[in-house]
Design a protein around this nucleic acid. Structure first.
Lengths: 194, 194, 194, 194
DNA sequence: TATGAATGAGGCTTCATTCAT
DNA sequence: AATGAATGAAGCCTCATTCAT
């Protein structure tokens, strides 16, 4: 009955949850997965109890951060795929993913460390990601802009790898661009001769 | 090389040290940096006390493992550089580095986690690595086999990134080869036209 | 009974209080004193805040549960004492107490854990209990149905003990009856000879 | 090979383990199962780490305490059974069990709380206890000293119950004796008449 | 007055490092 | 020099209680 406005009680809770996600994303990224739950809570301006009320486990928090990140990536990537020509969409999306992953390389580690659980939680989402990547990749391949022998696994690997390269370089836009040039050139079909 | 008398008491100690390094390299690689010192010691067949006698800190052990790995890389890379033609040497060394790093990606994390300290310990070594890479890179560039605008930082970044790609793919030699093809193609000078 | 105007607001409050007592009695009994206040509140269909409005402390709630249980016991025991012959009243009351305590053994633990405080709260009540027990006991002793050397403390101890026996046995009516037979036989005056 | 003396290294460890068991038995008994591991360790004069080195879990420590207690009971009860006439052995053992359990009532709670795990750990031991009790009980029954309709479960229940009675009474030897008289009288076969 | 989100002290447990043997 | 038991700081998480809505 009470349409329109958000219910006052949940307002603070929602804000805290969002705040925790934002802060956790930042702090995990900048200081690694080793940050204590206490630190995250303090950075978010709440008590540990609040953190654990919203996320039953440290890992659950990490997972939530990852999910949110991916959801956004998928959303933006999908938009790209619909707006641009296949080849442009593909390369733009490649940049998008790498840029968005900037500073988050350690998150990849979460997959290894937290392993199965994280994946499980990301489950349905992973499907969406995969579908989007497949759509972008095959589109670009049909357009003759990308080597036909590559599959989604290789694409993901190259995304992860390119991101790792960027991490390694540190913040140097020009150098980043040179890496992109190398990878993009390499992605294009090999010249017929040789 | 061993200049004079061997000190009998040191024999066991040296063996233990070597054993610890071997085992630590393996166990860090396979189970991550989270392995406990106790586990490493047990795997090496010694007590924790012995581990800490040889390496004052868990991090020091990790560093020693990294140093040894790099020393070997530099030695093998140098040999390559001396034996092969510049272009061949470059690409062979690229493969060498990536293959040798296989399964060790988490070590890169040590740089982030343990940060400065590790670097410090690697200090002098880094110089040697850098020199070798520079020699290989400029050789290949002079031979026209690699884009001239790339520098050593980009090369290192691409090595790290390619390694990350391989890690992501898991053990699939054919897929690994496709990644190498992409990166190598991308490393070659851009065609004149366009 | 309700002397004048009903205060509408209190109606809900009273209902909540009663509900909480009922639910707490049940849940404490079935899942132990370890149940969280949150669970009790949820089981009662109210928020924790409400629970704490009615009972300032988890322990206070436990105490209230105990008090209510005893009030009822005293009431029923008193009725028995007035209705039956001394000996019959005594043994019937003994059964009554044990049966009513069924499944509540852990409550005895509350005495140890919460200790003094609970006793304090039960204070006045304990007097009533004691008086009733004394009345029942001396009645039965005068009737020659119970050993004359026993006092109220021993009676209470035997009640507690018999209850513990029943708890230990689990729900087996026949076995329970055998225990009662042993205890009742033991309570009767020792035969003159030997 | 090193026969005879205990190995020096283990000496302290064994002493610490024993010390922890003794102290834990005492402290669990006197202050309930709620005592913190920290307190137990402090009382034993060791660090928490040492406690956890010897007992992987707080519950494991509790179980070890229970096992030791039972082992001793079984040993002493067995000796009794072999030394005395059946009836005397039975009643002496009954006293032994109750006296030994003095102050340990809360341990019974452990069975409920820790449940399965504790039982599991006690597994083989429970068999020994049961056998001993059966031997004592049937011996006394054959000698006509105990009601024939009672089984081991009832015996255990009465032991537990009598212990609870004693707990309830507090330290009052004369009162304890009165309880024993009641229970022992009740255990004897019912008089033929009536 | 009811709600349930927030709080934070405190519990159990782990593990790098030290030290007695 | 080697061993492994001991140490204790620190991490994650729970839960009785408080407080804003």
């Amino acid at each position: 009955m009470n349409e329109g406005r958000t219910r006052p009680l949940r307002a603070d809770a929602a804000r805290n949850r969002a705040r925790l996600l934002d802060v956790a994303a930042e702090v995990f990224t900048e200081r690694g997965l080793g940050v204590t739950t206490e630190e995250i809570a303090r950075a978010a301006g709440v008590g540990v109890g609040t953190l654990f009320r919203h996320f039953p486990t440290k890992e659950a928090l990490l997972q939530a951060v990852l999910v949110r990140r991916m959801e956004r990536l998928v959303a933006d990537g999908t938009e790209l795929a619909e707006r641009e020509q296949p080849a442009e969409a593909f390369f733009a999306a490649f940049r998008l993913v790498v840029d968005r992953s900037a500073g988050k390389e350690e998150f990849a580690r979460a997959l290894a460390s937290a392993g199965i659980d994280v994946h499980a939680g990301l489950g349905e989402l992973s499907g969406a990601v995969r579908e989007l990547l497949e759509r972008l990749l095959t589109g670009a391949q049909r357009a003759g802009a990308v080597r036909p022998e590559l599959g989604v696994p290789e694409l993901i690997a190259l995304l992860v790898g390119t991101n790792a390269s960027m991490e390694q370089l540190g913040p140097d836009p020009a150098a980043h661009e040179r890496i992109f040039q190398v990878v993009f050139a390499g992605l294009r079909p090999a010249p017929a001769d040789r």
